[in-house]
Structures are given as C-alpha cells and as structure tokens.
C-alpha cells in the first residue's frame, strides 16, 4: 500500500542479500558444530548471530535486530568469551567426543533439520503460495511489488511505537516478570559464581 511505490528500486537486491546473510549464518552455525576449539566456536557464533540480526532487518523488525546485536553480540557473546577464559587453563584446549558419537550427533541434528525444514516447507505449500509466500502486510499490493525488501521501509507500519505500546499494554505483566527474573538472575549468578567460601579457602591454589 503505502510502501508499494518505493519498493521497486530495491527489489532486485533482495534475493542475493538474503542468500548472503543466510549463507553466513548457516556457515557460522556449521562452524560451531564442526569446530573443536571453543574460541573458534565463539567467533563462528558471532557471525551467525550477526547475520541473523541482518535478516531481522529484512523482516521489518529493525528494533529486534538492534537488540540482537546489542544483547547477543555485545552481551551474551562477551559473557561466553569471559566464561571460556575463566574456565580454561588453555583456551584452545580440545575436549573432543569420540567420532562415532560425533557422527551420531550430527546425524540426529541433520535428521531434525530435515524434518523441521520439510515440515515448514510443506506447511507453506499446504497454506497456498499466494497467500503466504509473501509478506501478509502487503498481500493486497500489486504482484510486482510483493518483494521482501519492501519491509525495510515498513518502519512506519509497525515500528518501535507498536512494540512499546504492546510492552506496556498487552505484555506488561511478562515485562515485569522478565525484570524480576533478571534481578534474580543477577543475584543468583553472583552467588553461584562466587561459590562457597570454604571451597575457596581450602582450594586456594585454584585460580
């Protein structure tokens, strides 16, 4: 509707941009699976999380993309890296799993991926391509404008304001609960990580 006119210029970019970021995300994820060094895994994870953040942009969720970048890439990942450093005499140490078990794990992962992917594709097919293979917001728009990339322009359609209204309205209680949870986590994490004093004093040699 509103966004229909501007979309055409950007449309050709969409598929390859999607494949680019999706590809990075997938490669990163595969790297996490296949790598045996924890630091490398962390770096691969970084790529994946970052690419997913970009994909959120395509999905008209730029606020979420920002959160993804800030909380995940900036917060969680750094936390993980800290964890790696704190818990490892040698950050590049390998804790490997025997090959048969690894194969089994990969097999199960592959089976799950195939199964869920298959279900997803079948679901979309069963719902009918016309209705659901294009963003529903612009389903009524002329066919040539039904490009994914239009969503980038869709901030005025649902933006931060919508999110804010929802957070303080419909989702107020969960928001409060999440806040309490974070408090609990903060205290709990501090307590657990500190450990019992006796342990520290007895095992003083430990870092």
């Amino acid at each position: 509707m509103l966004l229909a006119q501007q979309s055409q210029t950007l449309e050709p970019v969409a598929p390859w941009l999607f494949y680019l970021f999706a590809g990075v995300a997938v490669l990163g994820a595969l790297g996490v699976v296949l790598s045996q060094q924890i630091v490398r895994m962390a770096v691969f994870l970084l790529f994946t999380l970052g690419s997913v953040a970009f994909l959120y942009f395509f999905l008209e969720a730029e606020f979420l993309a920002a959160i993804q970048l800030i909380v995940y890439v900036g917060g969680t990942l750094i936390l993980i890296i800290f964890g790696v450093m704190l818990t490892s005499k040698n950050p590049f140490v390998r804790l490997t799993v025997p090959v048969p078990q690894r194969l089994l794990g990969w097999g199960i992962g592959l089976a799950l991926a195939l199964m869920t992917g298959f279900l997803g594709v079948k679901y979309v097919a069963s719902q009918g391509a016309a209705a659901h293979d294009s963003p529903s917001l612009i389903a009524d728009a002329p066919h040539d404008s039904q490009s994914l990339i239009v969503g980038v322009q869709g901030a005025e359609h649902y933006g931060v304001a919508d999110l804010g209204r929802n957070l303080l309205g419909k989702y107020a209680l969960p928001l409060e609960l999440a806040g309490v949870l974070l408090l609990v986590v903060m205290i709990g994490a501090a307590y657990i990580a500190k450990g019992r004093h006796a342990d520290f004093e007895e095992g003083g040699a430990q870092p």
Partner: peptide, 13 residues
C-alpha cells in the same frame, strides 16, 4: 522430538 514429529507429520499433512 524427532519421533514425535515423524509420527505427527503424516497426520498434519
């Protein structure tokens, strides 16, 4: 999970 999906799939589809 896999088994559940595998069982559910034929029904779902």
């Amino acid at each position: 999970v896999f088994t559940g999906l595998a069982i559910a799939t034929p029904f779902a589809l």
